[in-house]
Simulated assay, not measured.
Amino acid sequence: MAGAVSSHGCRRLLGPQLRDLLIQKHCVLFDCDGVIWNGEKAVAGAPEVVGLLKKRGKRVFFVTNNCTRPRESYVQKFSRLGFKDVVQSEILSSAYCSAVYLRDVAKVQGKVYVIGCDGVHKELREAGVPFVEGETDVPGATIFDCPLDSDVRAVLVGYDDKVNFLKLAKACCYLRNPDCLFLATDRDPWHPLPRGRVTPGSGSLVVALETASERKATVIGKPSRFMFECIASQFGVDPARSVMVGDRLETDILFGSRCGLDTVLTLSGVSTLEQAQGYRDGRTTDKAICVPDYVVDTVADFLPALAR
């Protein structure tokens, strides 16, 4: 059964097994960071894998919780790193999906207050979703005397490297209204940086606001099903004929499992084989859904399976 977890989870995939898997699948979903690139360097073999999958008639999509850039910027990055013929419709970021959710599902009648980077702002603007713009930091301003927009009907929280206490306080004030939606692009707790450093992710800001507002955010990005629903509704993708390739157990693999996809963990990013095996062999069942069906070292392991 697609996405099923059993004692056979974490199976190593080699050429013949990978070939058999890809014969069964029509659609391959990739995470980006840690899977097909690390920073400004493509994972070795990744451009060739994507190109060969398309040449073999497979549908390829890229699903990322990174909300810092708009999809058009991702297209440019793919091209810059040697990926050919990646088009904007194949890229689903948490910023884009949040804009789609606000426009097509929530149908917000008012403005959105955003904690996030330009990627979120540009996707909202592209989708025609109004949000609070043009705020300038007044020296010495506090939540006691700063203006609030009476037309705000939703708060959207994503990664924001310019976040400050006043932004959080404004969001809390808006969320006092029970009719104000509370959305998060994703719950990623942290992101790896060069030289072993990390930066807090969107999830750290979401938890802060959940604590202060005593409310729970609706999460749009992985592991929420909504990102796959966007693909399925637009392109008619069958989960039973799809596979998710990612590097994070609690986001990518959980996302694939929840959506009924087979899952492949690549060891070129965040999660390790030991963590996956620990979840598989653990006595508790709450992490069982995070166990990948298969494991590869990197996406370059797909190359022998795609060779004719």
Rank of each mutant, 00 (worst) to 15 (best):
R125S: 02
D145F: 00
G82A: 13
V245K: 09
D281N: 08
C97N: 06
E72P: 09
V299Q: 13
L13T: 05
T199G: 03
R225A: 13
L29Q: 06
H8W: 12
L18Q: 03
H191T: 06
D20L: 14
P200C: 06
E214A: 02
V49K: 09
L13G: 08
G39D: 12
K287S: 07
D160V: 09
G201L: 15
A44C: 14
V5D: 01
R80F: 13
L166V: 10
R11N: 04
E135I: 15
E72W: 11
F30V: 13
D118L: 10
G57A: 14
G15P: 10
L18I: 02
K287A: 08
L254Y: 07
K58N: 01
K107R: 13
Y279D: 12
V198L: 06
C230H: 04
A127E: 09
R56V: 07
K84G: 04
H191E: 04
V152Q: 07
V75C: 14
V264R: 02
V35I: 12
F78W: 08
D293P: 00
V105Y: 06
A300H: 12
V219A: 10
E90L: 01
S93F: 02
K58G: 01
D160M: 13
C32H: 00
G45N: 07
A171M: 10
K122Y: 01
V87C: 05
V291G: 06
M227N: 08
L148Q: 10
S89L: 01
F62D: 00
P130K: 12
S94Y: 02
E274T: 15
I23W: 03
G51N: 11
L303E: 00
Q275Y: 00
D85F: 11
E210F: 08
T218Q: 09
P147M: 10
T211V: 06
T136M: 15
L102M: 09
P70D: 06
D262P: 07
R176Q: 12
G119L: 15
E40G: 05
A232E: 12
H26D: 15
E133C: 07
V157W: 02
L193C: 11
R153M: 11
T185G: 06
T251K: 11
N66V: 04
A169E: 11
Q88V: 15
V60S: 04
V35P: 14
M227P: 09
V43Y: 00
I289G: 01
Q88H: 11
A171R: 11
C290V: 00
H8T: 14
L52D: 02
A4V: 07
E133L: 10
V50D: 14
S89I: 05
P70F: 08
V295C: 01
M244C: 04
